[in-house]
């Protein structure tokens, strides 16, 4: 029989509630908590259950992931399951984090389940199959059953079907499908046309994602007295990258004091962005974060003042949801200092 390993948090692992959220990861032999529910119909034996506190995974991610990956070394498994995480945000992010790491290290299929409102969905849906789950744990049986259905397909090597049919969040992949009922494009066109003309419901075959447009801010009227800030997705950081911003698919950002910096010197600053040739930026970081030009213009009195920090993250592969979250974390600092305008340098 094939083997599976399940990841759950401290609550479902029967360690405790919020007060035990700092619980360090352990790998228990056999089935704990929801593993029993999985075991009913899963075409694999759950050989181990991993339990980790949500806060521990959130605050000590690297350590938690390393402990679990090290513990899995040498263990034989065909599938890695996590959750279901329902609407629990930290738990969802933890499931996504560990599934991604396990998939990358062991090249084993992974599967989790979250509610649409769980932030883990946006963060990880392009990396793995996340079943669309309920919002609260009373739906455990239903969510586990949905996971088991897809898990058994993966275990038997059967093709997992389209997102809407299987009930997972679309990963961003679109592929060709032969229609079983062989309805021709001409007939589909007529059906859609007649429905649209008569105001009846129809389903487009190519849904256009809603553009998340931000209205353009009004122009700064008095630049001479305006406070300007520098923000970049070009990955310019102090050479030791103190905030450990990732080189791609970033989830972290940093801010660095430039109140006494006339220009960003090569060797003191560099780029950690993995999406372009870094040679020019490492040679002169100002080409991406133009501190030199802004200090010069400040001296000339072209604008009022420069916000004392620049803010940096990496744009390549970073999801829109993550980018928006980081922006929402940065904005209060800018508002607190009454910044009037931001120069957003992308690459």
């Amino acid at each position: 029989m094939k083997k599976a390993i399940l990841y759950i948090n401290q609550f479902f692992g029967q360690i405790g509630g919020e007060d035990k959220a700092d619980f360090a990861p352990v790998i228990r032999e056999g089935k704990v908590g929801p593993a029993m529910e999985f075991a009913k119909n899963l075409q694999a034996d759950i050989t181990y259950t991993i339990i980790c506190g949500d806060n521990f995974m959130g605050s000590n991610t690297d350590e938690a992931v390393k402990t679990i990956l090290d513990g899995l070394e040498g263990k034989d498994f065909d599938l890695f399951l996590a959750g279901p995480a329902f609407q629990a945000g930290r738990y969802g992010v933890a499931c996504g984090t560990i599934c991604k790491a396990v998939k990358e290290k062991f090249n084993v299929p992974v599967l989790t389940s979250m509610n649409v409102e769980n932030p883990g969905v946006e963060m990880f849906k392009s990396n793995m199959l996340i079943m669309e789950g309920a919002n609260i744990a009373s739906h455990m049986r239903k969510d586990v059953a949905a996971m088991v259905k897809v898990a058994n397909k993966i275990l038997s090597g059967e093709q997992v079907g389209p997102a809407t049919e299987e009930g997972y969040f679309p990963t961003g992949r679109r592929k060709e499908v032969w229609l079983e009922d062989k309805t021709t494009a001409a007939d589909r066109m007529i059906n859609m046309l007649v429905a649209k003309l008569n105001g009846e419901p129809f389903v487009t075959e190519l849904p256009i994602p809603k553009p998340d447009r931000v209205p353009i801010a009004p122009a700064i009227k008095d630049l001479k007295h305006a406070k300007i800030a520098l923000v970049t997705t070009g990955g310019i950081v102090p050479v030791d990258n103190p905030d450990k911003i990732q080189s791609a698919s970033a989830t972290r950002w940093g801010r660095y004091d430039i109140s006494h910096t006339m220009r960003l010197e090569s060797g003191v600053y560099k780029t950690i962005h993995a999406g372009f040739d870094p040679a020019a930026a490492n040679d002169d970081p100002n080409v991406i974060t133009p501190v030199d030009a802004l200090q010069e213009l400040l001296k000339e009195g072209y604008y009022g003042s420069l916000h004392p920090y620049f803010y940096s993250t990496v744009g390549t592969g970073t999801t829109q949801a993550e980018a928006a979250r980081m922006a929402n974390e940065i904005v209060p600092y800018l508002k607190e200092d009454n910044v009037d305008g931001i120069i957003m340098v992308s690459t």
């Binding site: 679309p170 229609l179 190519l206 849904p207």
Partner: peptide, 14 residues
């Protein structure tokens, strides 16, 4: 891709 109407293929999100 038989776009003038024969196609029994479509595209789906996975």
């Amino acid at each position: 891709d038989q776009v003038l109407g024969w196609s029994t293929k479509t595209m789906k999100a996975f």
